[in-house]
């Protein structure tokens, strides 16, 4: 595998001095504490760390689901920290694909329809059938979520995330609810999508085995990035030891 993405010099996200403080009752929780990070266009990054280390908070901020308490988050030079709700909604709609641990599929829509739900409002999407083919689900398109296995459901979620051709694909514990064999299939789908669509992909996991499939690995601890490792040699998802 290639060690670095093609456009390694241009950062799609520039994150500087980001803190996030949650006020829950009388307790103040400092979820992020001065995070500095640059995500390069087209790279696959793994954000690694124990529960509560701040990686999901950062992903939510990058994804436009939340705003930092202080600091700056720039997407292609545009400040997200100061964006309005409406601007964040449009940002998510036009630029970001999400994959979550619990799939978040709409149970009343089939696999095809779950993808079409997004392509209907996207500006230049691929067809739902193509997106599903990309994750190997061309034969399960007209099944409802209740008729699909966990791995299949997660692949539908990936197909839904990538069908709009997002510039950013954010995955929060995408294999967290899956067994190892299914997890590998999902990671393969993510790697393939990253390679074929060039979407900058950030994967949150607490599974250290996954880190070697990434271009770059950020390790979180207590709301900070403790280390950043560039993988000179990436492994195939099938080689991941769970």
């Amino acid at each position: 595998m290639e060690p670095e993405p093609a456009s390694k010099t241009s950062a799609i996200f520039e994150i500087t001095g980001v803190t996030k403080i949650y006020q829950t009752g009388e307790v103040e929780v400092r979820a992020l504490n001065g995070v500095e990070l640059k995500l390069q266009r087209g790279e696959m990054a793994v954000l690694l760390g124990p529960s509560g280390s701040g990686k999901s908070t950062l992903l939510n901020i990058i994804g436009g689901l939340d705003r930092p308490t202080s600091g700056s988050v720039k997407f292609k030079g545009e400040e997200l920290a100061a964006a309005s709700d409406r601007e964040l909604t449009l940002y998510r709609r036009n630029h970001v694909g999400f994959v979550f641990q619990f799939y978040n599929l709409i149970p009343s829509l089939t696999a095809w329809e779950n993808v079409a739900l997004i392509t209907e409002v996207a500006t230049s999407p691929m067809s739902p059938a193509d997106a599903l083919a990309l994750v190997g689900l061309e034969n399960r398109m007209h099944h409802f979520p209740a008729q699909l296995s966990g791995g299949e459901q997660q692949r539908v979620a990936i197909a839904r995330a990538i069908a709009k051709r997002p510039e950013v694909l954010l995955c929060d514990e995408p294999t967290g609810a899956l067994d190892s064999a299914t997890g590998i299939i999902v990671l393969e789908a993510l790697a393939r999508v990253n390679a074929e669509t060039g979407a900058t992909t950030a994967i949150i996991t607490h599974n250290a085995g996954i880190r070697k499939i990434a271009h770059r690995v950020y390790s979180f601890l207590d709301g900070r990035i403790a280390s950043c490792v560039v993988n000179e040699v990436r492994i195939q998802p099938s080689e991941v030891s769970w």
Partner: peptide, 22 residues
Amino acid sequence: APTRYRNLFNASAGGFRLPFSQ
């Protein structure tokens, strides 16, 4: 158990297409 739905108002069905959004 997850709720099962029926494949009605099928926007993806070939041929006749209902003009409904997802």
